[in-house]
Design a binder for these strands. Structure first.
Lengths: 143, 143
DNA sequence: CTCGCTATCAGGAATGATTATTAGTTCGAT
DNA sequence: ATCGAACTAATAATCATTCCTGATAGCGAG
């Protein structure tokens, strides 16, 4: 249940000066419909269903705009394209290095972490992402 | 002051079954000599000084072996090649999205985080990396 | 020491994700 | 309706990283 409401999105577009085009809305809808952590390619395929004329480059550009205005979030694991999601609550995802599945790790306190970071650096922090890798139970059994 | 002693390294190579070749040792030395967070290319250039015949691919392979046996650590920021370091204490690096500089954020409590993670997932955790981006003071002044 | 075995290496080509380019299109403001 | 800025589609280009091939090196058995 991502907390990304249309009203907030419109507001963020307005403030940023970017325009909320149909393609960008479609990318957003694709992310809404995909509870996992789709790659740009996944989003592209999803968007293509409703609008077969979109180009992959447009999806990349839309994702980058959406991330810049703070509506989507990206994470990069090794050996995998970047993955995107809408959930802007700080949360923790783990990726299986064998099968590539991504799932969420619950109950990990990240709340204080970001403010801790801001207090200990002179940088203006724009993005944080905690990347965790492992072997999922299913793949462990197979090994 | 990386805590990476030759003795530990040899032990880890022995246990893993990989062989400690001169190229791999050179990669390790390059990381020792570079206190920052060099990319594979940086390491390559550094290694080349003592052995001009090494190939970039070899550096990548050496880094991946060294990471697998737990001697080096990699992090991936957006818009930047992967960066490697020797410091295996969990620590926090921030990268300036404008000039690319990487520096460390001190005094952030990451100690409990990893055990917290392990307790809340069925995955066998093999790697964690906290990736933070921002604008460094120098670049902020210029903007 | 020498043969043969296996892991590794150098060099370069190939891959795959992402970005840049360019010409055309849409959209909002006038 | 007109104009200009922002956006898009399509494709080419880029860059990090991996893969492939034949050559080497190191090691154990004899």
């Amino acid at each position: 249940m991502p907390m990304v409401l249309d009203k907030d999105v419109r507001e963020k577009f307005r403030r940023s000066g970017f325009t909320l085009t149909s393609q960008r809305r479609a990318v957003l809808d694709a992310l809404r419909g995909n509870k996992g952590h789709p790659s740009a390619e996944d989003v592209y395929l999803s968007v293509k269903k409703s609008n077969p004329r979109v180009a992959l480059g447009t999806v990349y550009q839309a994702l980058s705009v959406l991330e810049e205005i703070g509506v989507v979030h990206s994470k990069r694991w090794a050996d995998s394209p970047a993955r995107y999601d809408l959930n802007l609550e700080p949360h923790l995802d783990i990726r299986c290095r064998s099968c590539g599945a991504v799932s969420e790790v619950p109950n990990v306190g990240l709340v204080d972490l970001e403010s801790d970071i801001r207090q200990n650096t002179l940088y203006e922090v724009t993005r944080t992402a905690l990347v965790v890798e492992g072997i999922c139970p299913a793949c462990r059994r197979e090994a």
